[in-house]
Design a protein around this nucleic acid. Structure first.
Lengths: 211, 211
DNA sequence: CTTGAATTAACATATTCATGTGATTTTACA
DNA sequence: TGTAAAATCACATGAATATGTTAATTCAAG
């Protein structure tokens, strides 16, 4: 018997979720709340296996509730975020704070039960449109910026030394060139990166994944 | 009518997939191949909407096939990777090369069709255990290192300015403090981060995700 | 063969940074 | 209420950096 708690401000949806889950074999609603102001205590008392958490609630928002729950040390209960939109930022935040799944409210009843079961078993059910967002974010992150600002190989080399925190003197000695040459390269690098200090160049190198 | 091409070395699975899909309303198998050595040409000729691609094939592996397909410029066809294991590395690679979904071979027939349809419609169906892997990877990446080197709030603030490439003067004026105070903070920051230059501090801030 | 980019180098100068050694005032907390 | 940490500021000095100008050599591409 999977025990479910529901946090949803919309009374109608709240009740129909409760109805759906309670009338389904193997599921039981142990608590229903119109907000997640006391979600930590609620979960402590009721010990649900799975929580359905609306992301857009008045008062403490769903993400905040999830955050509080995880901060309180409860990493056990599976949390399914419910939302109307497959919004990028929210998905991101939800993942950050350890949501176990992210599904749209329009999900069909049968699938919803399936998702709850999935989460209970340790899976991470998500609406496939949400999954698309996640994959997109994922590959964006791991896509190193293809514009390397047309740095020459020597310039890139110098930039790498800068990132490693070398001084001009050290770079010169490591590259077997004069310190004035290092200066020349760095001047060029600054032009190409549109910066005018070492630390800006380093920051840009990280941000744009040049190194 | 969703047109599907199958690339799967196991003859039995290949045939049963074909059978399943062909006997289902709205689906049609346009091609079946025991390897993906010519996947680019195959897809050019048959123009499938969705490709089922076994990840563990002899000759050109599934991931390679996917890669070739995307490199050839075909970003249109939806690719569902089929696998036995929810293996971390493979999932990662598949995402990199633009797979649209990642499902286990043991997926029930009904769900498989659903997944194909999902992919066709632009979603990213994945088995929920796979989704778990993805989310885990995702949050690992975005998990800011929990050791922030015991920087005080003011020090962290200054560090953020450093990362933004501000000079001491600019930081002082922005924070409404004397430039010597900025120095003091920065000296402390260097001690705590074990560095001794602006650019090293910036680099460390990025590497350890302090900012 | 010449033109242009890349790499190398020198010189000058003003600014910024790193470091040391103090001190005062808040703020937190035991 | 006393003490430690945090935040503030000052002064000094040498090192490092940023910027400008100029120029020789190499080397690939037109």
């Amino acid at each position: 018997m999977i025990q479910v708690a529901i946090f949803e401000d919309n009374a109608q949806l709240r009740e129909s979720l409760k109805e759906l889950i309670n009338t389904s074999e193997g599921f039981k609603v142990v608590g229903v709340f119109p907000n997640c102001n006391n979600i930590v205590k609620d979960c402590e008392q009721l010990k649900p296996h799975v929580v359905l958490l609306d992301i857009d609630m008045p008062g403490i928002k769903g993400i905040e509730g999830l955050k509080n729950l995880r901060i309180s040390g409860n990493t056990d209960v599976k949390v399914l975020m419910l939302t109307v939109f497959d919004d990028n930022k929210s998905i991101f935040d939800a993942i950050q704070y350890g949501a176990n799944g992210y599904i749209l409210k329009k999900t069909a009843p049968a699938k919803l039960l399936e998702h709850i079961n999935d989460a209970y078993l340790g899976g991470s059910p998500m609406t496939s449109s949400v999954a698309t967002q996640v994959l997109k974010m994922f590959s964006e992150i791991h896509n190193r910026g293809n514009d390397n600002y047309n740095l020459t190989s020597r310039e890139r080399e110098v930039l790498e030394y800068l990132v490693k925190g070398y001084s001009y003197k050290m770079i010169a000695s490591d590259m077997f060139i004069a310190i004035d040459t290092v200066r020349s390269h760095i001047k060029k690098i600054y032009e190409k990166l549109h910066v005018n200090s070492k630390s800006e160049a380093v920051a840009k190198a990280f941000q744009d994944k040049i190194v």
